[in-house]
Design a protein around this nucleic acid. Structure first.
Lengths: 176, 176
DNA sequence: TCCCTCATGTAAGTAGTTACATGATTTC
DNA sequence: GAAATCATGTAACTACTTACATGAGGGA
């Protein structure tokens, strides 16, 4: 969030109320100590201002911080990667070269596909059973998992084809 | 997971490799201390067995435990309810009265709808801009959020109409 | 006057995970 | 005879959140 503008700890919190806040939120209890830590590491620096008698510390990212952030965006993801964590990163990828992001998305797609295949296997077990009604909500949550991953793959393809914008506008007809 | 059968701590971990594991997983470091705590509270009891020279503690739920669990399933959800947390609960609702679950789902739907309206507001801000291409991934993640919540509402309606099974079977054509 | 927003920060608590220690059985 | 599985458990650590403490400015 500091990549474009210098911000206070309070501003950072505000930023997480929408946008990336869909995927990641933090409290002051984690923001302020982290800013201090990042400052010690030379990732950020701050200037103390006084705006209409109110003191504030405005944090700006350093070159080192920028470099480290770009590394973090493109590094190989841990094997237990969560969808929300992936989205939180993708949200900040606009300044990266397109091919880097596409590669990242392809890795992600593969993992999602593997998970989906596991769920298909699980479904087979359920579909064999004769007393499916007894497990209606277990089946429903499995159905949820499958549709979620299927639509996620569809979404990946839309994004890769640079068609997100069209789809976003198209959907308008469903708004209330 | 103990609701139907008595299980060991090890078994519980195994159970989370599929099924509810889609939404919630725990490590031994949290399972064993929790089982002890639940035992002290009278929610579960255990019998020490020796199966082919291996010692094991098999945990069974008590009436008090069952009662408390049913309360937990139906209680009012905290305002910061996460979708995965809701699904984890729903997974264990098969033994409950249908009307109770339907009510719970209706509450859930309302909250999802409210979130969706917030995202529509956010979209309006983006669609006003002329330099949308600069925020392609921010727009893509917003598009992800919107489609996710829309398909979640569709899913809720399918589940409420008791049509999950049909849809689950229908989807077979997409399997690889 | 009261409440909301701006603004920084800490102490205590929550809810776990990771890595290790231990040891038997079973399968390749 | 090595590796995987069954089985229980703990200590150290991670990564936060919640609630509190403090205080100024602005609007109803």
């Amino acid at each position: 969030m500091l990549y474009r503008n210098a911000l206070t700890g309070y501003d950072l919190r505000k930023c997480m109320e929408n946008g990336v806040g869909m995927f990641y939120k933090a409290s002051y209890g984690s923001i302020y100590p982290l800013l201090e830590k990042l400052s010690e590491q030379g990732m950020v620096s701050y200037t103390e201002n006084t705006v209409s008698n109110r003191k504030q510390k405005k944090y700006a990212i350093s070159d080192k911080g920028r470099k480290h952030f770009d590394y973090w965006l493109t590094e190989y993801e841990p094997s237990d990667l969560k969808i929300e964590a992936f989205m939180a990163k993708l949200y900040f990828c606009d300044h990266l070269e397109e091919s880097l992001v596409t590669e990242k998305m392809e890795c992600f797609c593969e993992r999602i596909n593997r998970k989906l295949q596991e769920l298909y296997q699980e479904r087979k077990q359920y579909l064999k059973m004769t007393n499916q009604e007894e497990f209606y909500y277990k089946l429903s949550t499995l159905y949820f998992g499958i549709t979620k991953l299927q639509s996620l793959l569809d979404w990946c393809n839309v994004v890769k084809n640079r068609s997100s914008l069209e789809y976003l506008i198209m959907q308008e007809n469903r708004e209330m």
